[in-house]
């Protein structure tokens, strides 16, 4: 009976969260007065994480910043250097899993095939020289301004 109540509460919570998702949505990124830096960005965070790298003076850096009155710079944005997305890491891990399975169960043809596939994918990846890009300063500014407006509207 108690377990059924517990499960029911969980289901009610799921349903209420879903039905009232617009009213309950958090736009601040910091709904519970967090102490550490992940709470200082928007939710979800932008791809570049921080427009300016935070300088840390305390273990609970975000708490320290709020307590001592930080002010977020609203100009002087710079282009942000970013790594490009690539699926190679995940693909190599997947092939390694296949190789391990084949080795454990003595499936030699599969082991040979996955080793060859690993080599092909790895070597192919080394022919990709364009691995980074810059988020332009204007785009950073737009995204930061949107966040500032959302915070001001709160």
């Amino acid at each position: 009976m108690l377990i059924a109540l517990g499960i029911a509460s969980f289901l009610v919570q799921l349903v209420v969260s879903f039905v009232r998702r617009e009213q309950l949505r958090d736009v601040t990124g910091d709904p519970w007065q967090g102490r550490t830096l992940e709470w200082s960005t928007s939710s979800p965070p932008p791809a570049y994480n921080f427009a300016f790298t935070p300088v840390i003076h305390d273990l609970d850096a975000w708490w320290d910043m709020k307590r001592r009155g930080h002010s977020v710079p609203d100009k002087g944005y710079r282009p942000i250097h970013m790594p490009k997305n690539t699926g190679t890491g995940v693909i190599l891990s997947g092939l390694s899993t296949v190789l391990a399975f084949a080795l454990i169960w003595y499936i030699w043809w599969l082991a040979a095939a996955s080793v060859i596939a690993l080599l092909v994918v790895a070597i192919n990846h080394t022919f990709n020289y364009k691995r980074d890009y810059y988020i332009p300063a204007e785009e950073v500014m737009r995204s930061e301004n949107r966040r500032a407006q959302a915070l001001a509207a709160e």
Binding site: F52, P54, V55, H57, R68, H70
Partner: peptide, 29 residues
Amino acid sequence: HSGTAFTEAKAAPHAQATAEPEAPVFYDT
């Protein structure tokens, strides 16, 4: 104003001794 405050704070962090903890540089611009 915040721009000048930033440069001042960087140039002379101990210029103003107040009871309140002074805000240091929080963002690397």
